[in-house]
Design a protein around this nucleic acid. Sequence first.
DNA 1: CATGTTAGACAGTGAAGGTATCCAATGACC
DNA 2: GGTCATTGGATACCTTCACTGTCTAACATG
Lengths: 210, 210
Amino acid sequence: MRLSELSRRSGVSVTTIKYYLREGLLPPGRQLSATQAEYDDDHLRRLRLIRALTGPRGLSVSITRDLLGALEEHTGDIHVLLGLALGAIGPVGEPEGDAPEGSPERGEVDRLVDELGWAVHAGAPARTTLAETLASLRGLGVPLDWRVLLPYARLAERTAALDFDQLEGIDDSLEVMERALLLTVLLEPALLALRRLAQENESARRHAGA
Amino acid sequence: MRLSELSRRSGVSVTTIKYYLREGLLPPGRQLSATQAEYDDDHLRRLRLIRALTGPRGLSVSITRDLLGALEEHTGDIHVLLGLALGAIGPVGEPEGDAPEGSPERGEVDRLVDELGWAVHAGAPARTTLAETLASLRGLGVPLDWRVLLPYARLAERTAALDFDQLEGIDDSLEVMERALLLTVLLEPALLALRRLAQENESARRHAGA
DNA sequence: CATGTTAGACAGTGAAGGTATCCAATGACC
DNA sequence: GGTCATTGGATACCTTCACTGTCTAACATG
């Protein structure tokens, strides 16, 4: 199909698709001549993936590019891809610029990971996010200890297990990677939404009980 | 203290503080004369709270304003405030513009909430977020059913219980509200970070096992 | 040959979150 | 009483991000 058809079928404007091509989010089509290029269903699929990952409050264009690049490079080894992906996604949204590197909070996070017995690499940006959250809350007078995070971490462990269960039974390797990415990223707002609803419910329960 | 001192003590520039005053995030100081105003520790505290809630990937200025407004108006009733707060925070980060209002996904979410037995109001934006996530994933060929979300919701339930446990033993009402807000908002990136780490660990586990 | 499409280049847009500058009116210190 | 920093208020400007619009010359298709 040609660019205009890709645009029509995806609902993404021609100019925006050009923008994605320019930014390297979408691989170029098969050049038929100087002014003609052919796109296929993979492009359409990729385009939909891009729209899903970016979008309101989603990933930035540059991170999406890195992620999609990793997906192409490392088809075959989920573990490697996920490592890259989870790293590439980067600090989920650091609350403050605290916790530089060798802060006491970093040590606590390492302690936490150790206690949990988790096999995660030392440079994971998620560690930084955790340290910054601790530092930030303390700066606001909330005396949060790493031990408080332990039960949360145990629940996260089970959440992760559920995530991987979703990938069972899929054979195609690329398919697995793509789905892993989607579940990791797109489920985030949903999980937070569930927490919000659960909080409202819990609030109602405790309020009624008192 | 005067504006310049507030700036020095908070690490926030004078112009930015003026900006927050203009936007109504920070209440004006006690006017001593036409060109002199007095700020107190509450302002400092409030300012720190603002920086914690906004900040990279945090809340928008307008939502923060609504939230802080609600906090002042409804000191005393956590349940009311939390309802407002969780509502005000709004769609956590909708993945796509799907699931308009009367979509089948909305019905599924209602079904899910019903199954869980949760007491949450019908207009909660988190419901929309969930519906949009379902719609978005389906549009990408992931056949996600609401039943898949059930175990996630059960874990969210326990997470919310942990959240409320953190508020136990605090007497001052304003203090409780503020902390509830902080834990709801600031813990979000931390919980996602824990999930990321747990995923990496789970990936390692399953990889090794295979 | 008329009309439509394309790649590539590049400037412009709009929202968000500040930042900078100017102002006349003080207030504080000497 | 003079000097200088500070204030609230107004307004203009800046930067980033994710697009969007416009233009051009080279084709492609009927």
